[in-house]
């Protein structure tokens, strides 16, 4: 049960997070019920559920860095429920999309096959289904620790596919997909630089923040150069202009610096939990 810890005791920490994972869906249901989703409610709901799926996918990838940077082992207990919630939102996303096509499943299937961004999204969905199906205690035991871990490393390519899907479906404005792509770049970079079993040092995290911000600007530059008629140099230059709000590269840099700042916090005594033997 998601609200119990490994010993089977009720865990308020896990229970609160478990309940919070329902919140976006409840808010969406409320908006649908009160007809405040705007004049194209199906599409608005498709976008909302899909965006939450991607947020949760990145959040599940942020569990390990958060655990190591904050030195809070119990954070790891959240990963499975966040990952499974991500899959639930992806399924919701698919069902709502089908609803937008008046539940004409033949049409849904043909659109998935004919539009490359939908094909990519659907492959990501299948991958998440495999991960969700192997998320029970029994499945973990059957696969064995190393096998299970190897399989669940699929989360990285799945996240990349999901981000491509997110970017391709955008019109001209790819601000939010680029922000997500930049955060993903940080999460992947973290895994490259983190020493076995711990968080990287403060200077490494500072360098990672700068590198992830630069990577965001680079991905964005490449997208505009390859996929649009927009001059990518103008986009790159605009990173220096903060008057229209911060651009994705700057947000990613700020998030990276935030992680570094948390690393710099004085080490708390690990009084809460008895030593894990």
């Amino acid at each position: 049960m998601p609200w119990r810890d490994r010993t089977g005791a009720f865990s308020p920490f896990k229970a609160v997070v478990f309940a919070a994972l329902f919140l976006p869906a409840l808010l969406l249901a409320e908006a649908a019920w009160t007809a405040t989703l705007g004049p194209k409610p199906w599409q608005a709901a498709t976008h909302d559920s899909g965006t939450w799926a991607i947020r949760l996918l990145l959040l599940s990838l942020a569990i390990t860095p958060a655990r190591q940077i904050l030195r809070q082992a119990r954070i790891a207990e959240l990963r499975r429920m966040i990952g499974v919630a991500c899959f639930a939102y992806v399924m919701l996303h698919l069902v709502i999309y089908a609803g937008d096509l008046a539940f004409d499943w033949l049409k849904v299937a043909s659109e998935i096959l004919r539009r490359i961004y939908l094909t990519i999204g659907f492959v990501a969905l299948l991958g998440l289904a495999a991960l969700a199906a192997t998320s029970t205690d029994g499945a973990v035991q059957r696969l064995g620790g190393p096998g299970w871990r190897r399989l669940h490393r699929l989360a990285y390519p799945i996240a990349a596919l999901a981000l491509v899907h997110f970017t391709l479906q955008s019109k001209a404005d790819v601000t939010e997909p680029m922000l997500m792509a930049g955060l993903f770049a940080w999460l992947m970079g973290y895994r490259l630089v983190a020493p076995q079993g711990g968080a990287p040092s403060l200077p490494v995290l500072l360098a990672l923040a700068v590198a992830a911000a630069a990577a965001t600007a680079g991905i964005e530059f490449a997208w505009y150069a390859l996929a649009t008629g927009i001059n990518p140099w103008r986009v790159l230059e605009a990173n220096l202009d903060v008057t229209f709000g911060l651009r994705p590269a700057l947000w990613v840099g700020i998030a990276g610096l935030g992680a570094a700042a948390l690393r710099a916090l004085p080490r708390r005594r690990t009084a809460r939990r008895p030593a894990e033997a």
């Binding site: 404005d173 505009y224 927009i230 001059n231 990518p232 986009v235 605009a238 202009d241 008057t243 229209f244």
Partner: peptide, 10 residues
């Protein structure tokens, strides 16, 4: 027109 700040649009 705040959108004009997105200087990369033509």
């Amino acid at each position: 027109m705040p959108g004009l700040r997105q200087s990369w649009y033509p």
